[in-house]
Amino acid sequence: MLLIPCPWCGPRSEHEFGFGGEPAVRPQSSASDTEWADYLYMRTNPKGRNTELWCHSAGCGQWFVMERDTVTHAIHTTREMGA
């Protein structure tokens, strides 16, 4: 079980959180079909250090950015969005 350090609430059990995937920049509505499909479905999914969005759903309800290793599950950093 991951122990996730919420930027507001401190370390809490993984059960309290929801996973939001890799952040993606939302294209303008003028985007081509390919650009739009990439935004919807394509992510880099690296083996190793990755940037992800998480939400403390059963806690403060805030979304934040996490740097996590997808192989070892080590959590390197968590920070507020826009920080």
Binding site: G18, R26, Q62, W63, M81
Partner: peptide, 13 residues
């Protein structure tokens, strides 16, 4: 509710 919060916090802060 979760969807509204997600869009407000991540896309339209």
């Amino acid at each position: 509710l979760a969807m509204l919060e997600q869009w407000r916090q991540t896309e339209y802060p």
